[in-house]
């Protein structure tokens, strides 16, 4: 009843194409947009989930990341890209709830639930947080934690403002993110699941995982919505 009422008062629309949807549609998408989502279940890297060949990618071999494993069950693009753009630039956070549900509904992700004990979102710079009004990773983490009946932990902190990662090369990204985080783990826990929205080269997650490791955490896993690796053919 309440759902119907709120639907009548504040009708929802698809995160991808803005066509009206009933209630939450399929994870915030309309049927046709949902069909257009491309899952990242082809051959991919065993560590960073970068799509390409069924072996550890060159990047992970050259500089082994601090996290044990990264999962990114969807490929960035199409309706998902539209949705994330809408969330970030139109500052509409509620679609993240649908996306979090989408993530949790993915069968590959079920395994992670048992793997990790703590859910930690990647924090946002203070200035960026102020302009956007919310931290998309934190919203995702909260929703995932709610679904898994766990608690999110805010033990990471940004030490400085960083420039936006988009438009930078891999080296620039890594130097941009170097020592950008500080972990505050008073009682070191075993397994941590880092949450972010999209992974490209993994520079942010690597840096965050590194700082967690420094703080004495043994294993760090990472989960993102989508992978947007530009070197798909590698």
């Amino acid at each position: 009843m309440l759902e119907h009422l709120s639907q009548a008062l504040f009708p929802n629309h698809c995160a991808g194409c803005e066509s009206p949807i009933a209630n939450n549609g399929r994870f915030g998408f309309c049927d046709s947009c949902y069909e257009l989502l491309s899952p990242n279940n082809g051959p991919r890297c065993g560590i960073c989930d970068a799509p390409g060949l069924p072996q550890t990618c060159k990047r992970c071999l050259d500089t082994p990341p601090a996290f044990e494993r990264l999962w990114a069950p969807y490929l960035f693009g199409g309706p998902l890209q539209q949705a994330i753009h809408r969330i970030k630039f139109a500052k509409e956070e509620f679609w993240l709830h649908g996306l979090a549900e989408l993530l949790c509904a993915n069968e590959h992700i079920q395994a992670i639930k048992e793997h990790c004990t703590h859910i930690v979102p990647v924090p946002l710079g203070k200035q960026r947080l102020k302009t956007r009004g919310f931290n998309q990773s934190a919203v995702l983490a909260r929703k995932i934690a709610q679904i898994w009946q766990k608690k999110p932990h805010y033990i990471l902190e940004r030490t400085r403002e960083t420039a936006p990662q988009s438009g930078l090369s891999q080296e620039e990204r890594e130097s941009n993110m170097a020592d950008a985080f500080k972990a505050d783990a008073q009682n070191p826990v075993e397994n941590i699941l880092l949450i972010d929205d999209v992974v490209t080269t993994g520079a942010t997650l690597k840096s965050a995982a590194q700082s967690l490791k420094k703080a004495g955490i043994q294993r760090v896993y990472a989960l993102t919505l989508a992978h947007s690796d530009p070197h798909i053919t590698k």
């Binding site: 956070e93 203070k126 947080l129 102020k130 009004g133 919310f134 805010y154």
Partner: peptide, 21 residues
């Protein structure tokens, strides 16, 4: 309100500034 909430350290990470404001 938005400015006030954003000044509180860590508030923005834990809660949504927009919703609170």
């Amino acid at each position: 309100f938005y400015q006030c909430f954003s000044l509180c350290k860590g508030y923005g990470e834990r809660f949504s500034l927009r919703k609170s404001a």
